[in-house]
Simulated assay, not measured.
Amino acid sequence: MKIGLITDSVSHLPFEAALDLAQQHGLNSVEVATGNWSEAPHADLDALVSSTEARAEFAEKITSRGLTLSALNANGNQLHPVSGKAHDAVVRRTIELAHALDVPTVVLMSGLPGAKGDSSPNWITTAWPPENLDVLAYQWDDVAIPYWKELAAFARDHGVKLAVEPCGGQLVHNVSTMLRLIDSVGDDAVGANLDPSHLMWMGADIPTVIRALGTSILHVHAKDIRINTWAAQRDGLLDTVPVTEPLGRAWNYVTLGLGHPDGATFWADFVYALRAAGYDGTLNIEHEDALVNSLEGVGRAADLLKQVALVEPPDWTPANV
């Protein structure tokens, strides 16, 4: 396994400084956002797609520091009834850029449609009232699956895999919806980007998630959460308090190791479960802790992952008996 950094974690830094930070902490790779929900502070997508020189300069900044580019990130809502086409354009240009840079993976969300005729997305979280299931059927059968079949074909043509991140507020938000998308469009182009934090706050058991997703895990984000019991026990875990107000929320994204009472033990179990499922790719640090300085948070996450990451391939074989 390798350890990487999502450079948006330190979006206030120039690209070169973000790369220097990754190098200083002994990391192996970076993941760079190209647009949509990210302001893409470290990548000019249009310039990189259109200019060989821009791509060469971009790549040289990374490789000259002994780093690789593990993925490009185009998180947004391509299925939004109003802005979806603009987000889709960023996704497709990002796939084109990944092909040109020989980057194997583009990370993205599934997107979330609205109900038929609506102008806003609609996240269905319960089977009642009965019309919820009609909305959900429309979202999957009429919008998402046709879109994703075509996008998967586009990715195949460019030799790029799409790592979809199950996340609350998206059509794909758990294991079952992730597997439904893969079954609908084919696992040769689409798999999972596992960010355990999104599934933790919904109550999922992460080792069980890893076993269920298995070899469909293409990419991993290393991000933690902390449950604020005083709020969760009162209101549950569905939470609309802004993430910029962490003291009022039922849960928060936190620096690795600060979310579980057992600290590093959780992350040791995490990487061991990934190895057992066949994943030996990158663990990309994503800092979104509103209470911890981003430079400190990245450093603490790097130190923790270096304690638990399994670097070398296994070589043990049982003795003949």
Rank of each mutant, 00 (worst) to 15 (best):
V135C: 03
S176Y: 13
P207Q: 12
R65P: 02
T68L: 00
D224W: 09
D20C: 08
G278D: 08
I225Q: 02
L72W: 09
T208S: 11
V209Y: 13
T177L: 01
H12G: 04
E57V: 10
D205P: 05
G236A: 03
D102W: 09
W37Y: 15
H219M: 06
L247Q: 13
G257F: 12
G214H: 09
A17T: 15
R92Q: 08
A144L: 02
L27F: 09
G169W: 11
I225P: 00
A59Y: 09
I182H: 06
S11T: 05
A232Q: 08
T265M: 09
L67Y: 14
G278R: 03
R300N: 13
V49W: 08
D289A: 00
H80K: 02
G236V: 05
D44S: 01
N174R: 10
S64Q: 14
E150D: 07
N228I: 05
V311F: 08
R180S: 13
L304R: 06
E312I: 04
V143W: 08
H198V: 03
E288A: 08
L194M: 12
K85N: 11
W123S: 03
L133E: 14
W128G: 02
P129A: 11
N252G: 01
A231M: 05
K116Q: 15
D134M: 08
D102L: 04
V321T: 15
A144K: 02
A54H: 06
D141M: 00
Y253I: 02
S51F: 10
G214M: 04
D46E: 15
L274W: 12
S11M: 02
A277W: 10
A301R: 08
T177N: 07
N174K: 06
A232I: 05
L162P: 10
V30M: 01
P129V: 12
E288Y: 05
G259W: 10
D315L: 07
A33E: 06
L27H: 06
N75F: 10
L79T: 15
D235E: 08
P146H: 02
G186L: 03
L79R: 11
E286G: 02
T63W: 14
T244K: 00
T68D: 07
N36H: 05
E245M: 00
V298T: 06
S184I: 05
W267M: 00
